[in-house]
Design a protein around this nucleic acid. Structure first.
Ligand code: SF4
Ligand code: SF4
Lengths: 137, 137
DNA sequence: CATAAATACTACCAATAAGTAGCATATAAA
DNA sequence: TTTATATGCTACTTATTGGTAGTATTTATG
């Protein structure tokens, strides 16, 4: 089970952008606001563009903007696109092969956590964030 | 949020041992049963010994054995000892500084997952595993 | 005591993730 | 058309984690 920094960054960025979802954000802006290194953020933005959440506008006055309503972008999709939700969704013990039809000794325990995590990530979209609250980084 | 392979291994090993908690297990045995590389397992066993879950018996006929009842060893403690439960327990977005008194936009969402994870790991001991089920690796 | 079978320790190596540098490309506006 | 200000791409460097090698140490037993 793993949620890497890359996934964290992706969430930070998109949640931040979702506050004003029709605005165009430059990498520079995002770097200043969020605490992510410049080049790494840019690379991530390109990935997120390729994943279809946002699109890039090149050239002067360029930046990034959502391609669709934030209510259609779920946290699950974001994590999945940057590192595979499987890794989060899989087995705590890291058993790759488990089919779960014949579960192991820890399964009942783990299932509770995993299900909660899945449910929440699958049903929460960027529009469900509480933007009254502070965005901090 | 991260649960590394090392933590997975620690769980695998101790859960396996917990099936017959009064037995002495050699590293060789564990390596054969579980799917963890020999040297790495040995190093982990030393760490787990230092953490006080098990103790090592040196010399011929040596091995590892629990130092206390498996009902007194919680999954939380295990994860905490090998990599700091903080990392699991902390913020999804990886914000180190958050005090949670003035939470961010994602906090309500994340809290559900984190609380479930915490609750389960804190209240589940090695004795709560379902040893009827297959132990697989 | 010599041997066999176990753990302990130290230092190194490999794989992956994170971060950086530098240049190419695009485009609005003076 | 030049310039300023964006993103895109490729290759490299650094940090972290996972894994390995080799040797020292411990101890039951013949
Ligand atoms: S049954 Fe065991 S091995 Fe399989 S997913 Fe559940 S916890 Fe992991
Ligand atoms: S309030 Fe936000 S930053 Fe703080 S722990 Fe919760 S999700 Fe993380």
């Amino acid at each position: 089970m793993k949620l890497t920094k890359t996934a964290e960054y992706a969430l930070r960025i998109l949640i931040f952008m979702a506050k004003k979802p029709d605005q165009l954000y430059t990498a520079k802006q995002l770097v200043e606001e969020l605490n992510v290194s410049d080049k790494y953020l840019r690379r991530l933005m390109t990935d997120l563009s390729k994943s279809g959440f946002i699109r890039s506008v090149q050239g002067r006055d360029g930046g990034y903007i959502f391609t669709k309503g934030t209510d259609k972008i779920f946290l699950f999709d974001i994590v999945h696109s940057v590192e595979g939700m499987d890794k989060l969704n899989g087995c705590v013990l890291g058993f790759e092969k488990c089919s779960c039809t014949n579960p192991c000794a820890m399964h009942d325990t783990w299932e509770h956590v995993r299900d909660e995590l899945n449910k929440v990530f699958r049903q929460t979209s960027l529009a469900n964030m509480d933007f009254e609250k502070i965005l901090r980084y």
